[in-house]
Design a protein around this nucleic acid. Structure first.
Lengths: 233, 233
DNA sequence: CGCGGTCTGAGAGCAGTGCTCTCGGACGAG
DNA sequence: CTCGTCCGAGAGCACTGCTCTCAGACCGCG
């Protein structure tokens, strides 16, 4: 029934090797930092470096695979956390989203840097990354859509510059973004940049000598955004 | 009178060579991307690689020098722009600060990534970087302090979590941060993360397929922050 | 002016990197 | 059982950061 059982032994071994390589690479990333060495990964796998090229055409391809996995892992963690909050508690769901995003970032710092830090040199985000990268955004949109539909959120009548409003109206016609009025979406985008900006600031050391209680600070940011989005008073 | 004239010819040549190396390195950074190669810099300088080590003990040291320069260059640009706005126009000064920060980032993308992207592997921010890195923050604080002193800003009585308030009160005792009430500083920190989060999102491609008019979008963000800070209606 | 020390560039070399290519053996589908 | 596919090993290329040695150029001081 499982996917592996339908595969030939060779193909099975192949996906297992690929998983091992990624596993080791993730470990290196976490321990050694962002300078991932394919040769070092090969050594840890007990194999000569050229063998790894049977599974990944280049170091960039391996990195891309890690990035896709990281996006997926982060999205899984966020969705999992959000799911455990009662559906009616919109603010609670927003908090869960934000908290779990930050927690994931704290526990996977170098992977977070890969996703939200400076873009990697050779690498141009392939199609495979945009879907998992968007999942948390779509989740946020779902919360806001529900809030609007349920009249819990009173859509702000903020004056938006024409081109900005146009962008948000166009976005609202994309699958998963529907039902969120421009005013709400504008505030959501702002909140998003603010929260991930805060996470990046924390992780990249921009708050050193300033903030000491990071947990409390982020919690405060969450409250501010929730209030601004109309999810709480 | 000038600094160079007081130096021996050798020392003069030395500072000139250092400047040339940094110049070439900056160019490589802009053209080739973040993978700066010391050997390539040496080649462009028409010199063998080991010669460069007479001026920079390591690649990291060269990178650090570039980072310090970049912070300084950005701070210069921001201060220059802010200075040209009439002192009484607090909102205008805030806009000038934000706009020039973004413009500098757009014109020096890889250097911006060095400053605000994922931290460089081996490198731990040395003392030399924190002063120029703080200059834009201090400028923002100066604007807000003036606003409060002049009663143009009505300090919000936001309820802040105890540890957060404590942090901001402690910060307010640091030179350059005085005279900014916790409520204002909290909002300033939020605005700061939001603005630099927005700039990073734009530069790192996180807005692709969403925002099309980046200028208008950032201008909108500036308005939102200015309003939230009490600098404008 | 000339001597001695300092500074600087060249060159060779080491260990590491990404990546390519060839070869031989193992595996599995027919 | 055989033939084609797959896979790992090994050698090799061009590159990297960095070290060390050597020789020459420069400059300050006597």
């Amino acid at each position: 029934m499982s996917l592996e059982s339908t595969l030939t032994p060779r193909a099975r071994a192949r996906v297992e090797t690929i998983e091992q390589i990624k596993q080791i690479a993730r470990h290196h990333l976490a321990v050694e930092g962002p300078n991932l060495s394919l040769r070092a990964v090969a050594r840890d796998l007990g194999v000569v470096s050229s063998a790894v090229y049977r599974y990944f055409a280049s170091r960039d391809e391996l990195l891309t695979a890690l990035i896709v996995d990281a996006y997926t892992s982060m999205a899984d963690a966020i969705e999992q956390a959000e799911k455990q909050v009662p559906r009616r508690d919109l603010a609670g769901r927003w908090f869960a989203l934000g908290r779990s995003a930050r927690q994931w970032a704290l526990h996977n710092q170098h992977e977070y840097a890969l996703l939200y830090g400076s873009p990697v040199p050779g690498y141009a985000a392939p199609q495979d990354t945009i879907e998992p990268a968007n999942r948390p955004v779509l989740l946020a949109m779902a919360i806001l859509r529900e809030g609007v539909e349920r009249r819990a959120i009173d859509p702000p009548r903020d004056r938006l510059p024409k081109p900005v409003r146009a962008d948000f109206e166009r976005i609202a016609s994309i699958d998963g973004f529907t039902g969120v009025p421009p005013g709400v979406m504008a505030r959501a985008f702002t909140a998003w940049a603010q929260l991930f900006g805060t996470i990046s600031f924390e992780l990249f050391g921009r708050f050193t000598n300033a903030i000491t209680d990071y947990d409390a600070y982020f919690e405060h940011q969450l409250k501010v955004t929730a209030r601004h989005l109309g999810l709480s008073r």
